[in-house]
Nucleic acid binder design. Structure first.
Lengths: 249, 249
DNA sequence: TGGGAGCTGTCGAGAAGCTGTCGGACAACT
DNA sequence: AGTTGTCCGACAGCTTCTCGACAGCTCCCA
């Protein structure tokens, strides 16, 4: 398998909890092609249909024919700006939910207010897994009130993505944001082994320079919190990476 | 699950008394599409059926075929004005309750007279949670004189949405309007963790620019009032947001 | 119309908690 | 026994949170 590939290498076949019969259709709008492609690639890996647009014009046109279920929209576009695109989407009657991307220094102020309809936003540079998590949440909520809580479970380890409660058996764990994200990633991919590079690429912001042993460190901290009771669930695959699963063999 | 329920994620026990089987049908009439959509979207996230109209004509026509249970009506419309629409609705025999929207400087006085029938009104710009709260109240009242009180409860913290009484155990708390709204929002969403952006976006008026630590501040004030006795109920999820729930273990 | 009371948001300092770097101990494979 | 990879304690820098102080504002009442 490709060690450079950003994507997880589990066979696409792991059906997530928010399963639906049809593929989720995602439109990614960003004038920076690498970013747009990054998002689209990750989404496809989750089994979604994804298309990208690099301008506002293109976005509006594509939305019309592709009919996405959800949109990722950069607010800094060369032609029409993000808000313009949003207007035009809405005016054409689409109630499609949107997750916005914005630069930290940029329009962050004007963005306030966007979580209201159920839309959400993320500040660049973001972590891919965080974006995917938000997309899933927004999708789940837009599906109506009957949606299920999203709870990840591996053996006696559970993670409730709404309450952010993580439990090993009965014991409630207190995780820091980074620990939480790493664990969520590993649990989602379980029982597939993830390389350290993959973990780094998905959980840390793209562009993160850390050529270090951060991943090992966070895993180490996680272990202390969740593996000090009972059989270990985080396993090292020497020379390769980590995996969360019930002790095999 | 209850179509009027605060949120999609109610664990058993949080289903309000004014439960009904069918989805609430809401008609939103506002000539400003973003506002109309905002309201419609929020309502849909609560599990309601919502449609929007941007003119008086459209509104009257839609009301006929959609048969809403409740109407949100902007009084400043380009063609027929809000009062005209109301007249025509009433004359066609509908007793559908209405919540009016009006500009601050506008016709507030004349509106006051209209709220006697159980209708209500709100001044623009409003906060979405406040609007939803009023809609729920009006609906409950229109369900008949024997309507049940709506009381939110988390552990020994109770909030009576009719009397606005908030109690921690026996102790009656005196909350300011903002504190009340923030607490209501958190209680409604409990035990889901809300980000500060979500709180800001739902509880403050749309268009509020406050890029500050208002939310933190209000939470801090709330804590002093309700968490100084007994176990804390408002919890900080560092790097993420706040949640109201009984301390888990 | 003026005065007072209470509410709200800004500022900022201090506290608390999180994160990544370094480096040495340790373990696993050859 | 050497080599490579992993684990994790300690620490410093940084981010985030908390909350006192204060000033503008609104609302109410005389």
């Amino acid at each position: 398998m490709c060690s450079l590939c950003a994507g997880p290498h589990g066979p696409p076949g792991r059906v997530p909890h928010y399963e639906r019969v049809e593929k989720v259709r995602l439109l990614v709008v960003d004038d920076d092609p690498p970013i747009a492609d990054l998002v689209a690639t990750v989404a496809r890996y989750e089994g979604w249909d994804a298309v990208t647009a690099n301008t506002g014009e293109e976005a509006v046109a594509l939305a019309g024919e592709f009919r996405p279920d959800i949109v990722v929209l950069d607010l800094m576009l060369p032609d029409v700006d993000g808000f313009g695109v949003l207007d035009r989407l809405r005016r054409s009657g689409t109630m499609v939910p949107v997750v916005f991307l914005t630069a930290r220094d940029g329009v962050a102020d004007r963005v306030a207010g966007l979580t209201r309809g159920g839309d959400d936003y993320l500040i660049k540079p973001f972590a891919v897994e965080e974006l995917m998590a938000r997309l899933r949440t927004v999708l789940r909520r837009s599906a109506g009130p009957a949606f299920q809580r999203s709870v990840l479970r591996v053996a006696d380890l559970t993670m409730d993505e709404d309450t952010r409660e993580v439990r090993r058996g009965d014991r409630l764990l207190t995780l820091t944001p980074t620990e939480y994200e790493v664990l969520r990633f590993l649990m989602r991919k379980s029982p597939t082994v993830m390389t350290k590079a993959q973990i780094l690429d998905h959980v840390w912001e793209y562009g993160f320079g850390g050529r270090s042993n951060v991943v090992e460190l966070v895993v180490s901290r996680l272990r202390r919190k969740l593996d000090d009771t009972g059989a270990p669930l985080i396993h090292t695959v020497r020379g390769f990476g980590y995996v969360v699963r019930q002790a095999a063999e």
